[in-house]
Simulated scan of single mutants.
Amino acid sequence: MASGGITAHAVRINAGEDLVSSMKKAAMSAMERSGTSSAFVMTAVGSLECVTLRMSNHTKEDGSSCNDIKEWKQRLEIISLVGTFDPEGFHLHMSVSDKNGNVFGGHLMAGTIFTTLEIVIGAIKNVNFSRLHDPATGFKELAVHPK
């Protein structure tokens, strides 16, 4: 465990912009300005015209597991957006709702802003994030290091 002071970096991402690359750019700027390699989503509101989410441990009809990827090509409201950024990548989860109030969520893969994304990125001073292979999960997982 490591801790440090938090700085908040607010940004508005405009209509038509790529969701993931814009957030990564904002997070990299926040880390650079704060002199750290750790960032996270403090809050986010906005809307999308499309989004791609990965479902975790979806079960196929034959009973085997996979991680299905689903895409919605419609206007959606962002209900929640959480996750972490490091210089090598990110881990973000998102929930969105459609025009009828149905909510969908999963691991964020891609998206395009419809009207706006108002996001506040937090950066933790004196803490560095990286991703290391975890043999227990088979994935690169978050590693937290005091600076």
Rank of each mutant, 00 (worst) to 15 (best):
E71C: 08
M31A: 10
T84A: 04
R54D: 05
L48I: 05
E141R: 12
H93A: 10
D86W: 11
T84E: 04
N128T: 14
M1L: 07
N67Q: 00
A26Y: 12
G16H: 13
V96T: 07
T84M: 01
T112A: 03
V103D: 02
S37D: 14
T36N: 05
G5Y: 09
M55W: 05
K99M: 08
K140A: 10
F85M: 00
T137A: 01
L19T: 15
T112Q: 14
A136I: 11
A123T: 07
V82S: 12
A27H: 11
S97H: 00
R12F: 03
R75G: 11
G16R: 13
K25H: 12
I119A: 02
M31R: 14
H133E: 04
R54I: 07
C50T: 11
T7H: 07
S80T: 09
E32V: 13
V11C: 08
V127H: 10
L53W: 01
I13M: 00
Q74L: 05
L92F: 07
S21Q: 15
N14P: 04
I113A: 02
G101V: 08
A8S: 14
F40C: 00
G4N: 06
V20K: 14
S56N: 10
C66H: 08
F139A: 01
S3N: 08
S34L: 10
H58V: 01
I6H: 06
W72Y: 13
F90V: 02
V51A: 09
A136Q: 14
S34G: 11
D134G: 00
A15W: 11
F129D: 00
K24Q: 15
F104H: 15
